[in-house]
Design a protein around this nucleic acid. Structure first.
Lengths: 219, 219, 219, 219
DNA sequence: AATGAATGAGTTTTCATTCAT
DNA sequence: TATGAATGAAAACTCATTCAT
C-alpha cells in the first residue's frame, strides 16, 4: 500500500550542506510526499523540514508560506508525472495495440506514482484554487494527448478506427478508467470487497483496453 | 485564515430547542457539508457547531470526538447516496436502454450530490482508515450492483449481451467513467481547458453509455 | 520610575473564574500595561495572558489578533485618562488660578498615569495608524478643552485675559509643557542632567503656569 | 506581516565595494531610518542590511548585535541633529528676536529631521537604557543651551529680560513647545482635528515665541 | 572585506477538547 | 438537554544571529 498515513519514515536525506539548489530540491520532494500523504490542511511544515533535512526557516525563505510550498509541490507532481511520458513510443505499434499500451502505461503511472493521484484529489477537494493560478501550464500539459491524436489518425487511416474521435475526450475515458480504481482503492476494498492489488489493477486495465478498442472500431 | 471559507451557504438552522433527534440530525448534516468541503484535517468543529446551530459541547456529547463525527458523516454520505437508488426502475427497459439509464443516473448522482465524491476522496486520501472500521456495511452497499446483475441476466438471456460479465466490475467501469470527470473537474478545466458543466457531463455520460453497450454486446 | 522595562511583576490578578466581563477587563488592563511598557512590536501576548491570569486563546477569542488588542488598549488608555477629568472643578476659581490648577492637573495626570504618555508615543511612532481607525472619537475627546473655554470666557469677561484665545491651541501649549518633561525624562536626565523627579516636575508646572498666565494677560 | 512596511523609500545605495568606511556609514544611515521608523523592537536587521546594500554578517561584524546597532544609531541621531546648531548665529540679533529665531530653529529642526524625535521617543519608551550608557556625552550635548545663556545675559544686561533665568529650563520650555506638536501630530490630528502641517507648526512656533518673550520680560 | 546558506529560539495564532453551570 | 467560558498542545511563521567560504 502506498498512501498509508502512518510510518512516513521517508528516510532523511544525506545531503551536502550549503547547497541551495540541493536544499530546494530536497524540500520540494519532501513537500510532495507530505502533501500527498496528508492533504493540504493535514500537511505539517515541521515534517517537511525534518524529512528534507533542513530547518523550517529555510523552507519559508525559499518558498514563502505553506500555500506556496503546496503550489510548488503540486507543480512538481505534474512535472514528475510528465517525465517519462515522452519516452512512451507508440509509433511502431498497430493502433489497437498502441491503445492497449497507453492504457497500461496510464494505469502503471497512477499505480506506481500514487502521490500524483493524491495531489490531484487534494487539489480538487480544494476547488482547484491553486492550479488555476499556476504559471507554466505547458509544463503540466500531458503529451499523451498528442500521442493519442497520432494513433487515432493512423487507425482512422487504415480503417481500424472510426474517424473524428476527439483525443482529449478519449484520453479522459482512459484516465477515468485507470484513475478510479487506484484513487478509490480503499473504499472499493471496503464496499465491494475488491482485492485491489497490482494484478487486479492490471486486469482492469486490460479489460478497459478491450472496451476502448471496441469503442473505437468503425460501426 | 488559510482555507478560503467559501460562501458558507449552509444557512444556520432554526430549530426547536430540547430536540435531541433534531440536534443530532442537524449536526450530521452540517458535518457532512463541512468535511466534504474542507476534508478531514481542514474541517472545523466550530463551523459545524455554528452551521448546525448548536454548541460545541453538544457535539462532543453526541459523537465523542472529531474522528467520530467524521465517521458518522461518512456513513451519512453513503446513506444519503443510497437513498433514491432503490427507486431506479430498470426492469421495464430494454437492457441496453437500462445500461444507458444507469449511467446517466450515476452521473447525475455524482453531479448533484457533490459531497459524496468529496467524502470518498477524503476517505481515500486518508487511506480508508475510517470506512474499514465502519459498522453496517449493508447500509453502504449499493443496490445498483444488484439491479445491474438483473439487467445483465436479461441481456444475456435475449442475446443482446455477452454472458459472464461480472456486475461489480461493470459497475466499477460505470462509476469510473462518471466519477473522474466530476471529481477532477477543476484540474480538467485547468489542464485540458474542458468546459466541465452539466451539459458537457451529460454528453460524456451518453458517450460512455455507447461505449459500455458496445462492450457488452456479444462478439 | 514608572516605565521601567524590567521586573514587570504586575501581580497576577485573582479573579473569579467563568466571568467573561471580568476576564475581558483583566486582559485589557494587562494589555495596557504591556503595550505601554514595551511598545507595539515589543509587547508579548504571552505576557498579557499571564498577567491577566487567562490563557492566550481566550485573548484571541475576545479580541481577534494582536493589532486588535492594541487598539482596545489604546482606547482604554484614553478612556482611563478621561476618567477624573470631569471631576476637575474650575468654576469656583479665579481664572488665573484655574489655569494654574489645570496645568498642575495635567502634569499630575501625565506623571501618575505614565502608560498614557507611553501609549501616545507608541501610537505616534506607528504613524497613528490605529487611532485613525478608532471608533468612538467622543470617548477619547478631552473635556479639558471645554473647561478651558469657559475659564477663558470668564477671564476675558472680567478683563483678566485677552479675548479670542483658542482653547484648543492653549490646551496644546499646556499639554506640550507637561508632556515633554515627563515623556523625555530619561533623555533629559542623560543629556541635561536634570533631576527629573516629582518635585522638579511640579516646579516646572508652576513655572509653566506663570508663563501661561502672563501670556493670557491683556496687552 | 504586522507592521505596514511603509513606502520603503530608502533607495538601496549604490556603493563601491570593499569600502569599509562607506559600508559602515551606509549601515548607520539605514539603521537610523529603520529604528526611527519602526522603533527598537520593530526594527529589522534584514531591512537595515537591504537598505544599506550590505549583507547581514557585515553588520554584525561591524557593530556586534542589534542593541549595539541601535546605540550607534541613537548616537548618530544626536550627532546629526547637533550639526547645524553651531551655525545658528544669534549674536547679531536683538535678544527677543534671538529667542524667536531660536524657537523657529528648533521647530524646523524637529519638523525637518523627524527621525530625531522618533529616536528620542523610542529611547524614552525603552526607559533610556541605552543613552544612559552612551559614551561621549559631549557629542550629544546641545550647544543651543550655551547660545541661549548668552542671549539671556545680553537681555538681562540691557533690561529687556529678567535676570536669573536658567537657560536649561528655558530651553526645556522651548523644546517642549516644539516637540509635542511634531511628536504627537497623528494623535493631534485624530483627537483635536488639528491640521498639523508645516504652516500650522510655524504658527505655533510664532505664538510660542510670543509667549516666551513675554515670560522673559521683567515684571 | 564580504556574503549566501542556514538555524535556535521564539512569537503569533489556531483548534480540538473540557469545565462549570 | 444544553452552553458560555476556558485551555493545552500544537501549528504557521519570524528574526537575531552564526557558519563556511
Amino acid at each position: 500500500m502506498n498512501i498509508k498515513a502512518k510510518p512516513a519514515k521517508a528516510l532523511q536525506r544525506v545531503r551536502k550542506k550549503r547547497d541551495a539548489e540541493g536544499s530546494k530540491k530536497a524540500i520540494l520532494e519532501a513537500a510532495l510526499i507530505e502533501f500527498s500523504e496528508f492533504g493540504h490542511a493535514g500537511a505539517r511544515v515541521d515534517r517537511i523540514a525534518k524529512n528534507a533535512g533542513v530547518s523550517k526557516p529555510l523552507i519559508y525563505d525559499y518558498f514563502g508560506d505553506k500555500e506556496a510550498i503546496y503550489a510548488a509541490a503540486l507543480k512538481e507532481a505534474y512535472i514528475q508525472i510528465r517525465e517519462g511520458e515522452g519516452e512512451l513510443n507508440l509509433d511502431q505499434l498497430n493502433p489497437p495495440d498502441a491503445i492497449r499500451a497507453l492504457v497500461h502505461f496510464t494505469m502503471d503511472h497512477f499505480r506506481l506514482k500514487p502521490w500524483f493521484i493524491s495531489m490531484l484529489n487534494t487539489e480538487n477537494l480544494r476547488g482547484g484554487d491553486t492550479i488555476r493560478e499556476l504559471r507554466g501550464a505547458d509544463e503540466i500539459q500531458s503529451v499523451l494527448v498528442e500521442k493519442l491524436r497520432s494513433v487515432l489518425a493512423r487507425g482512422a487511416e487504415n480503417g481500424q478506427f472510426r474517424s473524428r474521435v476527439d483525443p482529449v475526450e478519449l484520453y479522459i475515458f482512459i484516465a477515468s478508467l485507470c484513475y478510479f480504481p487506484v484513487s478509490n482503492k480503499h473504499t472499493l476494498r471496503a464496499v465491494f470487497k475488491c482485492p485491489v492489488d497490482d494484478a487486479w489493477l492490471e486486469r482492469r486495465a486490460d479489460e478497459a483496453a478491450d472496451m476502448l478498442i471496441r469503442y473505437l472500431a468503425p460501426a
